[in-house]
Design a protein around this nucleic acid. Sequence first.
DNA 1: TTGTACGCGTTATCAT
DNA 2: ATGATAACGCGTACAA
Lengths: 336, 336
Amino acid sequence: MSTITLADVAARANVSTATVSMVLRNRGRISDETRKRVLSAIDELGYVYNQTAANLRNRSSNQVGLLLHDITNPFYAEMTAGLSQEMERHQLMLFLANSEESVPRQQNFVDSLLQNNASGLVLCTARQTPSLFFETLKRRKIPSIMVVRPVADAHFDFVGTDNFLGTQLATQHLLNLGHRHIAFIGGSIDSTARAQRLGGYTSKLVENSIPVNSAWIVHSEASQSSGAKIAEQLFAAHPEITAALCYQDIVALGVMQALRKLNRQIGRDFALIGFDDITEASLVQPGLTTVSVASREIGRKAGELLYSRIQGNDEPPKRIILPPSLVIRESCGYTA
Amino acid sequence: MSTITLADVAARANVSTATVSMVLRNRGRISDETRKRVLSAIDELGYVYNQTAANLRNRSSNQVGLLLHDITNPFYAEMTAGLSQEMERHQLMLFLANSEESVPRQQNFVDSLLQNNASGLVLCTARQTPSLFFETLKRRKIPSIMVVRPVADAHFDFVGTDNFLGTQLATQHLLNLGHRHIAFIGGSIDSTARAQRLGGYTSKLVENSIPVNSAWIVHSEASQSSGAKIAEQLFAAHPEITAALCYQDIVALGVMQALRKLNRQIGRDFALIGFDDITEASLVQPGLTTVSVASREIGRKAGELLYSRIQGNDEPPKRIILPPSLVIRESCGYTA
DNA sequence: TTGTACGCGTTATCAT
DNA sequence: ATGATAACGCGTACAA
């Protein structure tokens, strides 16, 4: 069974391929009469449009790529859903890749996208991404939106959250509750986002004339177990700590484990705040107070912006920073 | 800046386009001499391979589609990661779509894939999928692997878990602990998977001469809140129930809420088992005993099978059923 | 190794 | 006003 082509349809309808093409794309001037003939020919033959051929001719495609480092992280899964929704609205197909923080894999994916004439990208790049990577993107002039992880290069569009403000909110909340010995737990040392979150925390301390104790600031991997291990050490060495702000909810969940092990009642004799507001935050006992960053909305906004870029919007690079909010549950007690 | 084509490279290297093509794809016999010339020409010109053109010529592509109904469900996110890994191994690009149980959206996605000459599909179809959908896939002869949700049509490859065995394991566990009043909570009435899980449960009861009480079998939506609501009603009407097997972990989490509200100690005066082993199951307090189905592995196996089909494997349809296992945590107490 | 027809839709230009 | 003609996008594979 050989493929049915536009030419076959044209023959059947006694028109030229040009006419069929115009009917398919609603362009040019076609009489209702012939349009009907063409449409029924399409129907009778069971013609399937060949996007590949169109792409080749147009030197473009309806495909965009999404690069993440961990789709199993609920935060990114949620963001993906938002983006996917937006892509569908615009009839764009979404390629997905999971770099798992591997720079070569990330590079492979982007190379493939370029070879496929992808018309845009949404990227949450791996941590050690070399600047050459960004240079290549710029040189190829492919619309690229960076998300969540800030990139030094201001040339790119960015959609993310206000890390600084987020931890300011959280820190202020702890201060309002009377805490003065507040730890900051988690994040990897070379992360820009961490620097920003740390900044929100320290700035609030300073603003309230509370000394910043660097021994209470520790980093960890983005996992529950790592958070637990780090926290245990920290609390053993510094029993004076009464509250902690975590870089991520995942880490906070680990800290919870540590606190339980040390027999400290979360919400009573210890206050804990996370960041991200992943689903789990509302499921644990007690519910985790956390900074919510509207992950789904980040996906949507990124999609919106990408689409406008693909349409030719050439305004200077944008930075869309979605305001975070503090979701108060039970992990800091009930006093507001 | 006009695109650099294969022809440009050929001109620069003083060879034919055929030669360049062969060098790029390591085919035919090319002398080391010319190969070097071609490679350096590619390098100098910064040539980028045009996959689109190749796809058109080959009437194929290196693209496969993954259709899910909810990427934010951790179970599917995990599966996606497994599939993504496998696709990358074979240099296949993965299209992702989130149907959110919408049949038209699902259809759109598959239509787009067909128009893009996708070489294969992995599908977890929406619940109300009409049989016409499957007919189309068969007619187009595109390799398609169904996952997780069993499909009536035995014509398709399937990768999933043994629902029946899973609930048998769980039910036996509860029986061993002495429970005789065991409820089955969750799943939607028209789900095949639910029928299978229900079968495992009832078969074990019958095997142990325990009457099946249909009043203890209730269904619910796949959400925590729905699970909680349903469970509350059930336990109020039937206080004699001392244990429950849930269709999904998500539902089990809701049931936990209900139990707390009713002041019943999970793991002490009530035993609860879930299904899926999502990450949350190990995070809640007490940890949820559940049937683990190796979601990541389902993704990998599906990818492996799909790849072999794309390569031309035309053995009869396969059903790969991964054995589930019971992960014992604390929600049934500590007695084994 | 090379020449070249081919895969299939698009669009600018031309014809009626 | 409508529609046809034909060159074009770029890599592939077969005959020479």
